[in-house]
Structures are given as C-alpha cells and as structure tokens.
Amino acid sequence: MPKNIPGFSSSCVVRFKKIEDNARIIEIMAFVNDDNLYFDAEKHLNLAILELLEKEEIDFLHVKLETSPEKYKQSILGSNN
C-alpha cells in the first residue's frame, strides 16, 4: 500500500506485532523519499488503511454490551432500602 502513495520509497515493512485482547496489532514501517511530503504521505496512508478496513468489512469500532436485567433490578431495589 505505501508503495502506491507519492512520497514513500519502494521499501516498507509490514509485520504482525501482537494480539491485544481481541485486536491484531500490525506494524507498518514506511520510509519517505522526500521529507517535504512526509505529512501528506502519512495522511494518505492512514486514509488508505481506513478504506481497506471498510472494503474488507472489518469492524474496528465494535462494542459488545452484556446486560442482566435481574441483577439490575436487585441493585435498584437494594439501593432504595
């Protein structure tokens, strides 16, 4: 992906770094060949990653909520006493 973004050199490193909870941490190291393009290249890389996540339908803002109505009722009744 970085190879197709203006400002990055053709060499880059992508590696699987670790698993943290249910997330897979991937490290991308890309090198710029023009310091003046650093911030633009970084911005375009971040956008490309977000587009890839969307295209692959990877949820990156997943929240799982678990509820227990019985425990909630008990806690409400207990606090009113």
Rank of each mutant, 00 (worst) to 15 (best):
residue 58 I to K: 09
residue 55 K to H: 14
residue 31 F to S: 03
residue 80 N to Y: 07
residue 31 F to Y: 07
residue 25 I to R: 10
residue 30 A to C: 06
residue 72 Y to D: 12
residue 57 E to L: 13
residue 30 A to E: 03
residue 25 I to Y: 04
residue 13 V to K: 13
residue 76 I to P: 07
residue 42 E to D: 06
residue 11 S to C: 04
residue 11 S to P: 01
residue 43 K to M: 00
residue 20 E to I: 04
residue 16 F to L: 01
residue 50 L to R: 13
residue 62 H to D: 11
residue 1 M to K: 06
residue 36 N to P: 06
residue 33 N to P: 04
residue 18 K to W: 02
residue 81 N to F: 03
residue 18 K to P: 05
residue 32 V to G: 00
residue 55 K to L: 10
residue 36 N to K: 03
residue 65 L to S: 10
residue 79 S to A: 08
residue 55 K to W: 09
residue 56 E to Q: 11
residue 33 N to Q: 11
residue 32 V to K: 03
residue 74 Q to T: 08
residue 40 D to Q: 00
residue 48 A to S: 07
residue 43 K to S: 04
residue 29 M to N: 14
residue 48 A to L: 00
residue 16 F to T: 08
residue 59 D to S: 15
residue 68 S to V: 13
residue 12 C to T: 08
residue 14 V to S: 13
residue 52 L to Y: 11
residue 70 E to P: 03
residue 44 H to D: 03
residue 31 F to I: 06
residue 42 E to P: 01
residue 46 N to T: 08
residue 68 S to A: 14
residue 10 S to G: 05
residue 31 F to C: 02
residue 68 S to E: 15
residue 79 S to P: 06
residue 67 T to S: 14
residue 30 A to G: 10
residue 59 D to P: 14
residue 14 V to D: 10
residue 46 N to G: 06
residue 20 E to Q: 11
residue 19 I to R: 11
residue 67 T to H: 11
residue 36 N to Y: 00
residue 4 N to L: 02
residue 21 D to Y: 10
residue 12 C to P: 06
residue 2 P to D: 01
residue 36 N to V: 01
